[in-house]
Computed example of a mutant assay.
Amino acid sequence: MKKNLVITILVLAVIVLVANLFKGWFIPSKNDRIADEYSRKRDSIMLYTWINRADSTLHGNFQQKDGEVINNYVTEKYMTYVQDTLAPALNIATEKIDELTRAKFTLEGQLKAAKDQREKDRIFYENKYMQIVSNTLDSTIKYKYNAIVDVVKYQDRKWLLGKENTYIDISSPDKNMKINGVEHFKKKLDVKPKKIGIGIQAGYYYVPGSNQFQPGFGIGISYNLIRL
């Protein structure tokens, strides 16, 4: 009796799992995900900043969150810019944007003045990234800044068995460039199941010699014939 009950439960479990491939019972629908986002709407990102001891550059680091609706992940001010300026410039609807990032930097530093004897009316300020020329005759300034920004996306866990999360690090090799904020949106994509998988399997197997079902478990390879 107990054996038949176990077999029945296993058969029902297989039926439910197969049906889920077609119906998606255990996978939230897009509308459900949107409703959940609105219930926990946020329009700011916690930016963790740290200084690299090797070169003294300032880094900004944050955990990527995937979602469905852009305005649940960026500030209202930036959303207005995206709708009124950025999306029209790209000739696309905001709903077509799959990923959006804006890093906010402050440039702050000091340059030493230098004069050229051949051009006494001009004063030069220059380093590796910035060049400024001041003209005392017409009170104008010409400037040029060679902006360099590094964006690194990587996977990491907070502890050995923890969930693997996506992080984004933004920095500049110019020590005068200070990151002080970021806006980011990444559209959530439905990941289709892989055709081939490796995992731990448990269940019952039939032993013809004793005409009995015996429990067993092990590591097996599965092949998904139906990949939606």
Results as ranks from 00 to 15, higher is better:
residue 100 L to K: 05
residue 100 L to W: 06
residue 100 L to T: 07
residue 101 T to F: 09
residue 102 R to A: 15
residue 102 R to G: 02
residue 102 R to Q: 11
residue 105 F to A: 04
residue 106 T to L: 13
residue 106 T to R: 13
residue 107 L to P: 04
residue 108 E to A: 11
residue 108 E to M: 11
residue 108 E to L: 09
residue 109 G to T: 06
residue 110 Q to P: 02
residue 110 Q to D: 04
residue 111 L to A: 00
residue 111 L to E: 01
residue 112 K to N: 05
residue 113 A to W: 07
residue 113 A to G: 12
residue 115 K to P: 02
residue 116 D to L: 05
residue 116 D to A: 03
residue 117 Q to I: 10
residue 118 R to P: 00
residue 119 E to S: 11
residue 120 K to E: 01
residue 121 D to R: 10
residue 121 D to Q: 14
residue 123 I to D: 00
residue 125 Y to M: 10
residue 125 Y to C: 01
residue 125 Y to G: 12
residue 127 N to V: 03
residue 127 N to W: 02
residue 127 N to S: 02
residue 130 M to R: 12
residue 130 M to D: 05
residue 131 Q to G: 10
residue 133 V to W: 06
residue 134 S to W: 13
residue 135 N to R: 12
residue 135 N to Q: 12
residue 136 T to M: 14
residue 136 T to A: 13
residue 138 D to R: 09
residue 138 D to C: 07
residue 138 D to S: 11
residue 139 S to T: 09
residue 139 S to G: 02
residue 140 T to I: 03
residue 140 T to Q: 10
residue 141 I to D: 14
residue 143 Y to G: 08
residue 147 A to Y: 12
residue 148 I to Y: 06
residue 148 I to Q: 13
residue 148 I to K: 13
residue 149 V to P: 04
residue 149 V to S: 09
residue 149 V to L: 04
residue 150 D to Q: 11
residue 150 D to V: 14
residue 152 V to P: 13
residue 152 V to Q: 14
residue 153 K to Y: 01
residue 153 K to I: 03
residue 154 Y to K: 00
residue 154 Y to H: 00
residue 154 Y to M: 01
residue 155 Q to D: 13
residue 155 Q to K: 08
residue 155 Q to R: 13
residue 155 Q to C: 02
residue 156 D to H: 12
residue 156 D to E: 11
residue 156 D to S: 10
residue 156 D to N: 11
residue 156 D to A: 15
residue 157 R to D: 05
residue 162 G to T: 00
residue 163 K to T: 14
residue 164 E to F: 02
residue 166 T to L: 06
residue 166 T to Y: 05
residue 167 Y to I: 03
residue 167 Y to P: 05
residue 167 Y to A: 00
residue 167 Y to L: 07
residue 168 I to N: 02
residue 168 I to V: 11
residue 168 I to P: 08
residue 169 D to H: 06
residue 169 D to Y: 01
residue 170 I to C: 05
residue 170 I to A: 06
residue 171 S to Q: 10
residue 173 P to H: 09
residue 173 P to F: 07
residue 173 P to L: 04
residue 175 K to Y: 07
residue 175 K to H: 07
residue 176 N to A: 09
residue 177 M to R: 02
residue 178 K to N: 11
residue 179 I to Y: 07
residue 180 N to E: 04
residue 180 N to C: 01
residue 181 G to P: 00
residue 182 V to M: 04
residue 183 E to M: 08
residue 183 E to S: 00
residue 183 E to N: 08
residue 184 H to A: 09
residue 186 K to F: 04
residue 187 K to N: 02
residue 187 K to V: 03
residue 189 L to R: 15
residue 190 D to P: 08
residue 190 D to G: 13
residue 191 V to T: 14
